[in-house]
């Protein structure tokens, strides 16, 4: 194995930046998953599908409007559309199942995945789609003597913004506080005269919005295609479990571990890069089976 020979400091630095932009996407998606898991106690397998739908809708809106205005409009409207879709699903189907066992809920969301997957195939076909970034975002900046795409830097800025937004929502707003209270004890919250069902709907909608946002943000960086949901949802679940169920900062930590081990793995041993994050997850869970940070469960 020719390890180490091509692992220069600069390459390591650049790969770290690449890993961090991947981390942003992973964090945004898995924080939504974690929010839903923490408050509603639902392992939402369809989260990956909503991410994929977010990417496709963003592509459709961006190509319909065109230009840089279209791109930014799509970035805003794509995730919103996903949020609305999730609200419809939650109110129409999901809210009737809250009393059921976890396994049933998990399978219900898997059924949604099957339905969504075929809906995407029906609406968008099975071709690759790609979304190009507006002019201002094209090209690269030189970081550590190596070129680094501007769009990835944009992603790096969005990540902390979302983290702050999540913190603000759950700690500083009334609905966020109610949601956290409902995560701990939904009966008491209901006894206080709060309609927990709608709180759940709100949280589910926000969580799925984040999945859509992740999909919208990832759209310019890779091929938008069928099956992009399958690998991502597994990664997001592992991140959430690794970080601690329902803990937003845990999701951030988990995403960092996942994104960085993946990026460094590509540098160290390209063939088995895919294995590195999974090894990290297994190690973390072996020593801290309930996640790194305090879980809300």
């Amino acid at each position: 194995m020719e390890l180490a020979s091509h692992v220069t400091l600069a390459a390591l630095g650049q790969q770290t930046l690449v890993g961090l932009s991947r981390t942003t996407i992973l964090f945004i998606v898995s924080s939504g998953l974690s929010l839903i898991l923490g408050v509603l106690r639902i392992p939402n397998v369809s989260h990956g599908s909503l991410y994929m739908i977010g990417a496709f809708i963003t592509w459709t809106i961006a190509s319909a409007i065109g230009g840089s205005a279209g791109f930014w409009a799509a970035m805003a409207l794509g995730p919103l559309a996903v949020g609305l879709l999730s609200l419809a699903v939650e109110r129409g189907l999901f809210c009737r199942l809250y009393e059921r066992e976890h396994l049933m809920l998990l399978l219900f969301t898997f059924a949604l995945t099957l339905v969504f997957g075929d809906m995407v195939k029906f609406v968008w076909g099975s071709d690759f789609r790609s979304l190009s970034v507006p002019h201002a975002m094209q090209g690269s900046l030189t970081v550590l003597g190596l070129p680094f795409p501007r769009y990835n830097l944009f992603l790096l800025a969005v990540g902390p913004l979302v983290a702050w937004g999540m913190w603000y929502l759950t700690n500083r707003t009334r609905i966020g506080k109610i949601a956290r209270a409902a995560a701990v004890d939904r009966e008491i919250v209901a006894a206080m005269g709060i309609n927990v069902s709608w709180v759940f709907a709100f949280v589910f909608c926000i969580g799925c919005f984040l999945a859509g946002l992740g999909g919208a943000l990832v759209a310019p960086t890779q091929n938008i295609t069928q099956g992009m949901d399958h690998s991502l949802i597994m990664e997001a679940f592992l991140i959430v479990i690794m970080g601690g169920l329902g803990n937003i900062w845990g999701a951030l930590l988990g995403a960092l571990i996942f994104g960085l081990t993946d990026a460094i793995g590509i540098l160290v041993w390209p063939q088995f890069a895919i294995v590195f994050p999974y090894v990290a997850v297994v190690i973390v869970l072996f020593f801290r089976p309930r996640g790194l940070l305090k879980s809300v469960w």
Binding site: L93, R96, L97, R100, M104, L107, F108, F110, A111, L112, T113, L114, V115, G117, D118, M119, K121, F122
Partner: peptide, 20 residues
């Protein structure tokens, strides 16, 4: 149809709702 997983998903939902 090539959309067989759609039907599988729908059937699964019906099972969860009506035949637990």
């Amino acid at each position: 149809t090539e959309y067989w997983t759609f039907f599988l998903g729908v059937i699964l939902m019906l099972i969860i709702f009506f035949l637990p």
